[in-house]
Design a protein around this nucleic acid. Sequence first.
DNA 1: CTTGACATCGCACAGATGTTCGTGTACCAT
DNA 2: ATGGTACACGAACATCTGTGCGATGTCAAG
Lengths: 259, 259
Amino acid sequence: MNFSDLSERQQRIIHFIVEFTRRNHYPPSIREIGDHVCISSTSVVKYNLSKLESYGFISRAPDKSRGLSVNFPALLASGYPLQQNGEPFQEATLGKKTSTTQRAPELEYYTADEPPVERASSRRFRVPILGKIAAGSPIAVNPREAYDPEDWIELAEGLLNVPADNLFALRVQGDSMIDASVLDGDIVILRHQETAEDGDMVAAWIEGDEETTLKFLQREGPNVRLIPANPNPEYQPIVRPADKVRINGKVVSVIRVLK
Amino acid sequence: MNFSDLSERQQRIIHFIVEFTRRNHYPPSIREIGDHVCISSTSVVKYNLSKLESYGFISRAPDKSRGLSVNFPALLASGYPLQQNGEPFQEATLGKKTSTTQRAPELEYYTADEPPVERASSRRFRVPILGKIAAGSPIAVNPREAYDPEDWIELAEGLLNVPADNLFALRVQGDSMIDASVLDGDIVILRHQETAEDGDMVAAWIEGDEETTLKFLQREGPNVRLIPANPNPEYQPIVRPADKVRINGKVVSVIRVLK
DNA sequence: CTTGACATCGCACAGATGTTCGTGTACCAT
DNA sequence: ATGGTACACGAACATCTGTGCGATGTCAAG
């Protein structure tokens, strides 16, 4: 199931859940979802939520208030665009089929009486290990399985050279992308972002190939060139139109585990 | 406010919230907290929750179900013991004032109808970053010594391939030992041990040279051969009598921070 | 046109959940 | 004793919130 195949409503729902949870540290209720996605009926929200759950994008705890969570590995694997870092997400990114549905206000995901929790100067932060990434297959996780909440790494912010937000980690599997920098079994820490600069190592989703790989990024006019770090000539750069490549995140750290 | 100054109940509450949220991806309700911390009255839970909120350890969204979240930065700053994650937390760590309060079952943080995803027991542990290692200057540190508690990395045991004891980390400084595996700025995690096996990457103190470097170890009769990973011919293996080389530890992981 | 799957709506209802309030106990200073 | 404070209990109360169900609209296949 591809993220872009979802109905606009469902995409908006997922976006909202992600944003709301990020801001409030607890999931939204069905009615809150409905309000912000402009669905008047709670049952419709439930209907779509069930759909999303059957696709594996979210998990639900029946009969529990706010008992839902997004399945990030599955989302990433499906080409979920992860743009909305901290800011109200852009409707434009949601697919532009001029829907007959009404547009939403959707500027704030938190209610007035609960401003986003201000977590100032957090020196330490956790990086969840969301799953595996392997050449030839998308970010591989059991789509139904929520990521292991215990699998995370905790670092001090000063250790990295980027803001310590929107970080996640993946375990590299397989030899196919072995190169000087990333080996089988390594853990790569990425920062969610949909753009990157030339020379950055990124996890990129290649449309058509339907796979996510780690490559160095370089722009070439309308194209992007994805360069494997491995100098071995059998690993050739991949050149694709920019709109066929979706960047999932930028690699900010590689953790190598020696045997 | 120090974490250890909290009443045992409040410590238990925080711990439960942390664990529950980690497992379920949504916060517990007041009654769920009460059940697992053995507080029969919801109002008592609310009372303590308000206290915790006034201390800044958690945030609450009034009138919203499960509208609470923990403030990790504040918790960590107050000395919250993080490493008991994953397993039912040890009462011993909670302060041993033999409370008159009843003891709790507290073996499960999840409700029966929402079993936790079964994970391989991954204990967590901290790795202190003891200092820098640079060619020319020895690492004048000793794992037993005190270290800045801010400077540490927390990992799950399963992440490494060695027992998670006697670990420490060093930040690599300088280019002198640049090679394919370890670059300037990297952090290496070592296990303190006096011996190592052939092929291990070790931090070795070379008597006479009066310096500590990272090299691959190989024995040669009475000698040891310290092989730089860098294939560049200018980096030649160092061969010394075994008694002139002192192994400080074995490298078990390398953390590379990209710019 | 009929049919049925799909998506939606509105609404009632039950259960889940936070809050309030009266009460009790222990401790401590006055 | 007296009063105050901190903490705890339980029950009643008011919402919040998920679910169920019938009705409606759309659209493509038969």
